[in-house]
Design a protein around this nucleic acid. Structure first.
Lengths: 243, 243
DNA sequence: GTCTATAGCCTGATAGAC
DNA sequence: GTCTATCAGGCTATAGAC
């Protein structure tokens, strides 16, 4: 969420597409990186993200977002004509991060290796992008008013394609005959919990914040329990690069 | 959340305790059940719960709550002097439901039986009280501004007492040597997911709403995977009363 | 492109008749 | 106990000077 220059441009594009009567800006891609525009867009999106998570959509005032971004309030309206456009742009930013994890897994891969990898990636993602996870969670909990289309047109097809691979593995006797979709939900819920409910987790564990060691423990625990739970032997722990 | 006459009274008590300058109402317990007061309190708390979940705290207007409850706006202020008091009363209501599930488990019990029971209870609870789960989740995600004390003074001690039991079972060789606290988080997250993220789950599965059969499947899946994952054999499925 | 000033609306909360 | 009428304040959004 810090070094995503390209996605930021999407923010402006989303805005323009949401509201046809938007500003007269030409395509944002024309601007070179580091220009005032790019810089301000990044500041605004980042500040908005924080405020939306902390205060909710209605609770986040444009004034507070402007203050956090260090810009006058009217500038927010200059870049994003309406508050909802800004909110959608922030969500869009998150989805582009999300989609990086919808990576391809192949029928020929080793199930234990792939699932272990997936679980560790998701835990690492929750650790490094807790705010993204939280805003996404709040949107879904409230009934996904802005993400219904995404769920139906992008997430559902992705899940179905993964289900196919898992079903093949089951047919080949490589893992227990469980319902693949429940396994996907289990991996999502158990890993995201540590980002979304960090306040609860840290309070119960009496910690001020997560440490890398704890994150590794969590990943190993989840990978171990889930893999054994579906009849796989968790692969020996190896050092992994967190992307 | 429909037939909890006793908790409703807590709403008024919470209100009085939160704001010392509250109304001149004498102790709510004096009123007999079914009185106008009780009825209105129930209507207000129920309507407020819905609005808070759907719109968030700031997005839920007292006017909207009043409309949903079928009462004039000023009545809300009569029963709950301030908006935050009403919100805290709703949360308090939820916690009383929650606490019913903090049941005692004994060292002499059979681990597989107890955990299977716990998982099935939690799934059933998510199914029958999705809104309660959602409001609690939103509060925690936003940093638990109103529930910090609850987490520290009630939830944490409860978790610690359960950890002891689980540790004993591990010492007795009854289950694999895992970290008990991660197991508790795993059970919470994987079961609550079906309430909090119902929109995502139902969209991905292309269903309009949950059915009892699906809930049973989910409970069996989670119980099976988690129990096997920690070295236990899931007990044979038996019919259970949902309380 | 930037920012001040302000319009217009809706909010939470209250006063006071019934 | 109930409810109408109203207030002060904060909100999004815009117009227009710079």
């Amino acid at each position: 969420m810090k070094e995503n220059g390209s996605e930021l441009l999407q923010g402006a594009i989303v805005d323009a597409s949401v509201d046809a009567s938007a500003n007269t800006t030409v395509d944002a891609r024309k601007y070179k990186r580091g220009s005032i525009r790019d810089n301000n867009l990044e500041k605004i999106l980042d500040a908005a993200h924080d405020e939306f998570v902390l205060q909710g959509y209605s609770g986040a005032s444009i004034q507070a977002i402007a203050d956090r971004a260090g810009l006058p309030k009217a500038n927010i309206h200059y870049y994003f004509k309406r508050k909802t456009n800004l909110y959608v742009a922030v969500l869009d930013n998150i989805l582009s991060l999300w989609n990086d994890y919808l990576d391809e897994i192949d029928v020929d891969d080793d199930p234990a290796e792939v699932l272990d990898n997936l679980i560790r990636s998701k835990v690492a993602f929750s650790y490094s992008n807790p705010k993204a996870s939280k805003l996404f969670a709040m949107e879904i909990i409230q009934g996904a008013p802005h993400l219904k289309d995404y769920l139906r047109n992008e997430l559902r097809p992705w899940v179905r394609s993964k289900m196919k691979v898992l079903d093949t593995w089951i047919a080949q006797g490589k893992m227990a005959a469980i319902d693949p979709v429940y396994l996907i939900f289990l991996i999502w819920s158990s890993t995201q919990h540590y980002a979304d409910f960090d306040t609860q987790v840290l309070t119960v564990m009496n910690r001020a914040e997560y440490e890398q060691e704890m994150i590794d423990d969590i990943a190993s625990f989840l990978s171990g329990v889930i893999l054994r739970g579906i009849g796989l032997e968790p692969p020996a722990r190896k050092e992994r690069k967190i992307n």
